[in-house]
Amino acid sequence: MEAIKTKIEVTEKERLPVVSEREAVFEARDLAVYYGDQRAIDGVNLDIYQRLITAIIGPSGCGKSTFLRTLNRMNDLVPAARLTGQLRYRGIDLYGPGVDAVEVRRRVGMVFQKPNPFHSSIYDNVAYGLRILGMKKDLDERVEKALRAAALWDEVKDRLKDSALGLSGGQQQRLCIARAIAVEPEVVLFDEPASALDPISTSAIEDLMHELKRDYTLVIVTHNMQQAARVADMTAFFGLDVSPDGNRQGVLVEYDETEKIFTNPSDKRTEGYVTGRFG
């Protein structure tokens, strides 16, 4: 029966590379961050892999934003913040001697919770970093490329000289993403990028992140578990831990492929959190 002999190839689902083949961009080793005497996170061991979306979820105060801000040294701006343990970026100790926070931030961009465009034109918002960092060659092309990558070009190409503040919240956030990727960072950090947006804009940002994954390593902090479930390849769950001295600190409870975290987490606390049963 010839009809049976012809085989149809099963379209294999896009699989994540197995752990040994993933390339780690960040490696946190026994990382702890303090604000003054207060320990915000403790004992974090976590590898963040190249060209994947890594989500960090957890209850309020678990230090997920703190962790994110150590990745581009934004925490340096908090005067009393200090750090123990090690955080390596492509093998280099990010907090080692001679490492310049400004240079770190050029390579590790960030998108914030509330859209924060500058009070200038759409064009100037994207061109800002390019001009200051001396990437002035082909400025128009670079701006267009960034706006296209942020899926905003078609909406703004006829009004590049208009104020960025005239855009909708979702458009402003995509503009901020364009601004961040215009300077060609290697990693983009997202600090609850959609929490101030309506569902349609949120969905647009999530689609955009999925597109950006091809070229960038993305890390997203979100208090919206479903968002992590939807966009992330890897998910880290941070929980709150009370140490014997009474200090409440964030600890990494579980880190695994997102599918595993949301269908079969290993840790009871993760299960409690993702099912919404956890205090």
Partner: peptide, 16 residues
Amino acid sequence: MRELYTSELEELEALL
């Protein structure tokens, strides 16, 4: 909107 999701649903139906 929700492109990944939409494509996953389509793939699922194609498999079926």
